[in-house]
């Protein structure tokens, strides 16, 4: 990951989001190829999904094949945050801090139903999807997803990285917690957290 895009573009090169030129596309190809094949995961395992994640990392499924050789237990050396399991509100500031500590470029995978939507836990303790706390790139459904599911999610993330380009000015933008104390608008969080499936039959007062 030694080759950074911002350092490699010579001063004065005009980079436009409308017309990527020969230099940027070749550079994108090279950096994206390097990045997608050396994703270092930061495992944030909170529940049973973490067990499937461990299985994915172990010899039978072997995440190393995707360049995820090294589990990064420090966020400062990590590229992709994998939230494996449910996230209670008590852990929300923790995952947010870990995400803020990760350097760019960084991605996030939400593994399992609970991390993606709160799952069956539509209760007072549970964050209804980690996308209300941090931006998420890939959602892996399942309860818990099998290792094949997680690996499919990882290949999807690799495809997404292949499509990234320096010509996109918003690509490496940090989405910080704003002055109002949230990273998304409040009505957006309420909308994401709306009950669905069986829990729509349950009123807020029940």
């Amino acid at each position: 990951m030694g080759l950074t895009v911002s350092g490699a573009v010579p001063e004065g090169t005009e980079v436009s989001s409308i017309s990527p030129n020969w230099v940027t596309t070749k550079l994108d190809f090279l950096t994206n190829w390097a990045r997608k094949n050396s994703l270092w995961p930061m495992p944030f395992g909170t529940a049973c999904c973490a067990i499937e994640f461990m299985a994915s990392a172990a010899s039978r499924f072997d995440l190393s094949r995707f360049g995820m050789e090294r589990m990064s237990f420090s966020p400062r050396q990590a590229d992709v945050l994998i939230c494996a399991g449910r996230l209670p509100f008590k852990l929300a500031p923790v995952i947010r801090r870990i995400w803020d500590q990760m350097p760019q470029p960084k991605w996030a995978i939400s593994m399992g139903a609970c991390a993606s939507s709160g799952g069956i836990f539509d209760t007072y303790t549970m964050v209804q999807g980690i996308d209300t706390i941090i931006p998420v790139d890939v959602y892996v459904p399942g309860c818990p997803p099998r290792p094949e599911g997680l690996m499919y999610g990882i290949t999807l993330l690799q495809k997404k990285i292949e499509g990234e380009t320096i010509a996109d000015p918003d690509l490496r933008q940090e989405h910080l917690v704003g002055e109002h104390g949230l990273f998304l608008p409040a009505n957006r969080i309420d909308e994401i957290s709306e009950p669905f499936g069986n829990s729509v039959h349950q009123t807020r007062s029940a």
Binding site: F89, K90, A92, P93, R96, D122, T123, Y124, V127, Q128, T132, I133, V177, H180, G181, L182, F183, A186, N187, I189, D190, I192, S193, P195, Q202, R204, A206
Partner: peptide, 15 residues
């Protein structure tokens, strides 16, 4: 079951 506050308020307080 889902607490007294809205989800956005709960998220804001948690963060």
């Amino acid at each position: 079951l889902r607490g007294h506050f809205s989800r956005a308020e709960q998220t804001r307080q948690a963060l």
